[in-house]
């Protein structure tokens, strides 16, 4: 980080300036390559990149939640998040595989070993595709909303804030104004999705 200080980065992120995360580029190669080396190259370059991006998102979310990691060791901090994510990914894959095998054995018994496993993969692929389609639809609708609408819905739907809190945070006159604004935004979102 040669152009801004870490404190400036934190202040910028709190104001929603995500472009500042570009300064983490200096740690990208270190984190990705360390992950690949530590995993004995089981983690591919593409996976390492995806995990690094997730780690940066986690870092930003932690900052927004009020956590203040020791930024003198930011590279080690990001690298640790990457490693934990990689381990979590492996554990989740193992759990999924065990669960699938248990279900299939229960359903088909010993015959399972000889059965064609492709249909399960196809099913999974279809599920993922269907979900991606829905996510894409929601994203398109979100992008058509104003910044204020997105913020109010984020605060209400995800963060579970009350109307009083939202009114205070977004400097609205009172909770009633926040409530009608939220319903108007929500209406627009749903209409975009329907259309």
């Amino acid at each position: 980080m040669d152009q801004i200080t870490y404190e400036e980065m934190i202040a910028g992120l709190l104001k929603g300036n995500n472009a500042l995360l570009g300064h983490l580029k200096t740690h990208q190669a270190y984190c990705q390559k360390t992950l690949q080396i530590k995993s004995s190259q089981h983690c591919t370059e593409d996976m390492a990149y995806d995990i690094f991006i997730d780690a940066v998102m986690a870092f930003r979310n932690n900052v927004l939640k009020g956590e203040r990691p020791d930024l003198r060791y930011l590279r080690a901090y990001l690298s640790k998040i990457c490693w934990n994510m990689w381990m979590a990914h492996n554990r989740s894959q193992e759990r999924k595989e065990k669960k699938r095998e248990a279900v299939q054995e229960k359903l088909y018994g010993a015959e399972w070993e000889n059965m064609d496993h492709l249909s399960r993969e196809e099913e999974e692929r279809e599920e993922v595709q269907a979900k991606q389609k829905k996510l894409h639809l929601i994203q398109q609708a979100m992008q058509k909303l104003s910044e204020q609408c997105r913020r109010i819905l984020q605060l209400f739907i995800v963060e579970g804030k009350s109307m009083n809190e939202i009114a205070e945070m977004l400097q609205m006159k009172n909770a009633n104004v926040a409530k009608t604004t939220k319903s108007r935004c929500y209406n627009r979102l749903m209409k975009e999705i329907h259309d």
Partner: peptide
């Protein structure tokens, strides 16, 4: 439908942010 939208909201928001982040921090290659 609204239930589904609410449950997928954060995920959709994350995906959008991820795309933005991938432009800010492109792959090393």
């Amino acid at each position: 439908q609204q239930k589904e939208v609410r449950s997928l909201w954060q995920e959709a928001e994350n995906e959008l942010f991820k795309s933005e982040l991938k432009e800010i921090l492109p792959p090393l290659s």
